[in-house]
Nucleic acid binder design. Structure first.
Lengths: 196, 196
DNA sequence: GCCGCCATGTCAGCGACAGACATCACTGTA
DNA sequence: TACAGTGATGTCTGTCGCTGACATGGCGGC
């Protein structure tokens, strides 16, 4: 007879998603979540720095996927190509089987501003990672930040589309389409707005 | 003899910035801020939805500047040109005289993750505004989101540079330079990364 | 000159978190 | 086999963010 059931962290994460979906984020206390899996509030906060974080653990795995993709880009590649390489690697992180879970999780996030805030922050961390990598590859700073931020924009737009009901394309396919759209958006010559 | 000194909101904002700068955000309680200007904690929270918000009030003014700029763009303008028009309007919001204040405020924000989170969220709100406007102009959705998000990226990068010590160019000048950088980043033909 | 408004104060309470200390199955070691 | 150490957990206590309910009292309108 073990003293504690194993996988406390994972049980808390699952329970949190279920309870948030049922009653909403604010109507669910950390103590509720902990009790529902036979733990105490204190233990919850030992596993997660704050209540929101229970939905964002595992983000570091995505960051690793990005990093792998960055390293896969050949030395001397153009900024945007380095980013594209990272995006390609990130796409592997979202196989079709993951779609229902991602969708459920996103539904919860979309219903709460505090969770959206945290999500934006996590995306910003990924951008910071990209920024750092690009600087390390000798790309100067305005370009490095722009490329990194643009990369997460593409990622986010693609993710939102991937989640959408009725969408059948793979994450990678969607991301490629979004990227093409971006290129045509900034690449096309356009009539400048008159400046006074 | 008036019952209350006028401008409670503004006094709270000033005091908050000073105290955050002196002791740090977390080491300053809402009650501290309120007491320092002769008010109570309860009054603080009547003026600001949460403790962080005391630094982000006035953001709606920036949003108005953006909206004005959006409306200034001619009908039928390309997505990115609409965004550029908004950026031009936003630049007016940051005259050189504002630089010291913006710098002080940003220093505080940069030292606290919770404040960075809120700042990202505010930027996202501006992007959402742009998105909405572009949709209203008949621009379809992947492009609308990309253009709006790209716009706030340019804005953010320009702002960070404008704040930097030793930087003398105006906000508008920096923004233009960043925008040029962006165009050359996505516009240039580059060797695609091999995909397996 | 009375009346209602509105910004504020007061009070009580919940929930998010954190520090300090206790517990006790498990593990390695003598 | 005994025994000390480890680490995940529980318990207790406290601070702070934030909110609802109600009271107060200048001030402007009528």
């Amino acid at each position: 007879m073990v003293r504690w059931e194993p996988g406390a962290r994972e049980r808390l994460q699952q329970a949190a998603l279920v309870l948030f979906a049922e009653r909403g984020f604010e109507q669910t206390t950390a103590a509720d979540i902990a009790r529902s899996v036979g733990l105490t509030e204190r233990t919850f906060f030992r596993h997660f720095a704050d209540k929101r974080e229970v939905l964002f653990d595992g983000q570091h795995l995505l960051a690793e996927a990005f990093r792998t993709g960055f390293e896969a880009a050949p030395a001397g590649a153009a900024p945007l190509d380095v980013v594209v390489s990272a995006l390609r690697s990130a796409a592997d992180f979202f196989p079709d089987a993951r779609r229902p879970y991602s969708r459920a999780r996103q539904t919860v996030i979309d219903q709460n501003p505090a969770l959206q805030e945290r999500e934006r922050h996590k995306m910003a961390e990924l951008a910071a990672l990209g920024h750092e990598v690009l600087l390390g590859r000798g790309i100067a700073d305005p370009a490095a930040t722009l490329a990194a931020e643009t990369g997460i924009t593409v990622f986010s737009v693609a993710f939102a589309q991937w989640i959408r009901h009725g969408e059948n394309r793979s994450f990678a396919q969607i991301q490629t389409a979004v990227l093409d759209e971006l290129r045509s958006l900034t690449g096309s010559e356009s009539v400048p707005v008159h400046q006074s």
